[in-house]
Amino acid sequence: MCLGVPGKIVSVTDIMGMRSADVDISGVKRQVSLDLCPEAKEEDYVLVHAGFAIQIIDEQEAEETLKLLQDLTGVDLPEAESAS
């Protein structure tokens, strides 16, 4: 129901108390508001929905999910692929 796209914060700006970030989604840049994610900072990956960052992606959890999947299935992915 709700499209949320992971993107990386490349810069944060503060215009008249409104914090926003330039988010890079695979080479596409979109300015998003940080009103709902005030703690997000440069280099963080955030979920982007309707012009807002709605959550910071937990990189450690993301890696663990993949690791869990690999353990579960007994499939070892080549480094390059799992890190891509």
């Binding site: 499209l3 796209v5 989604i25 695979s26 080479g27 596409v28 979109r30 982007v48």
Partner: peptide
């Protein structure tokens, strides 16, 4: 498919 095009498609659905 270019990465940027794939990214924009994700963004716009």
């Amino acid at each position: 498919v270019r990465d940027e095009v794939a990214g924009a498609c994700e963004l716009l659905g």
